[in-house]
């Protein structure tokens, strides 16, 4: 059954649009302005057209950072989404254990991002950190300040630790929203656990999983504070993501022009991929009926 058309519904949306536009429009225009001008100081700006865009697009260090970022965000999605769904399925549905599990799950999400990085420095230091000390005393040399691979492993561990609970909370809320009658019907039909998952739980979780995938993609693609605090982009450039490189350009070299162009391109990449994910997740498995 299709939704009825009612343009009066705009009245309900207006407050949201005004509030978000108030915050979004002016800063975005300002950044686009930076990206096409050479700014020396207040009132001293010169139109340079696409020069900054050409400079940024030809920057090989940016290409490397972007490749790294795609690898990182890809791994994040491949690990966190399935893991989050599995954990949500394993969670108790009622009783005191629910409260306990929910509170524990929320812990990593509630820590300010710069503090997350600090915790993981403490946690992985070979001399005083629980993880670093344990691994080294087991005879596995582990030092994320020296080895790029160790730095990546630490970052992935941190990321999965930090954000999988978000996927779990969303998936769990989606599961809880499935009426009991669906399960009863499945039980009468003698459906296997896999079939219940595939034909009842997974389709019903489409909405929350779409949000989970989009959020995890966007936020992991823009990740800054955690790797900046933990590795500072090193060793070498091994964990220099575009956001870290951007801040180096914008704040380190006071180059608002290239930084603005970089921001616009960066934004468009996130936008394009989010839109693709959104389209695919909206339509996958719906068949032609839609």
């Amino acid at each position: 059954m299709d939704k009825p058309t009612n343009n009066g519904a705009w009245l309900l949306v207006v407050p949201v649009v005004l509030l978000v536009a108030f915050n979004a429009v002016m800063p975005l225009m300002a950044v686009v302005n930076y990206s096409v001008q050479d700014i020396f100081g207040p009132g001293q700006a010169y139109w340079v057209g696409t020069e900054w865009y050409r400079e940024v697009l030809g920057d090989t260090r940016l290409h490397e950072a972007l490749l790294r970022q795609f690898l990182f965000s890809g791994l994040v999605l491949l690990i966190e989404i399935p893991l989050g769904v599995l954990i949500a399925l394993a969670m108790p549905r009622r009783g005191w254990a629910v409260s306990l599990v929910l509170v524990i799950l929320a812990l990593p999400l509630l820590i300010p991002w710069n503090v997350i990085g600090t915790i993981w420095i403490i946690f992985t230091r070979p001399d005083i950190g629980l993880l670093g000390y344990s691994l080294n005393s087991l005879g596995i040399p582990f030092d994320h300040t020296a080895s790029p691979l160790d730095a990546w492993i630490t970052l992935m561990l941190m990321e999965v630790w930090h954000w999988t609970p978000l996927v779990v909370l969303l998936a769990y809320a989606g599961l809880k929203a499935i009426p009991e009658a669906f399960y009863q019907a499945a039980a009468i039909d003698g459906a296997s656990a896999w079939k219940v998952f595939r034909y009842i739980q997974l389709p019903k979780m489409r909405g929350v999983l779409t949000i989970a995938v989009l959020l995890r993609f966007m936020d992991s693609f823009l990740i800054y504070a955690e790797p900046f605090v933990l590795t500072g982009g090193g060793p070498g450039n091994a964990t220099t993501f575009p956001s870290i490189y951007l801040v180096k350009v914008a704040l380190g070299q006071f180059d608002l022009g290239p930084a603005g162009a970089f921001s616009v391109i960066y934004f468009l990449i996130v936008l394009l991929f989010s839109w693709l994910f959104y389209q695919v997740l909206q339509n996958v498995g719906r068949g032609k009926a839609r």
Binding site: T5, G8, A9, N23, L222, S243, A259, S263
Partner: peptide, 22 residues
């Protein structure tokens, strides 16, 4: 359904997609 509903809905989310530094 209303004019521009799908566009506004997705536009809302695009506001989370800008790299905050600049």
């Amino acid at each position: 359904r209303f004019i521009g509903d799908k566009h506004v809905f997705f536009w809302l989310l695009t506001n989370r997609m800008a790299p905050p530094a600049v």
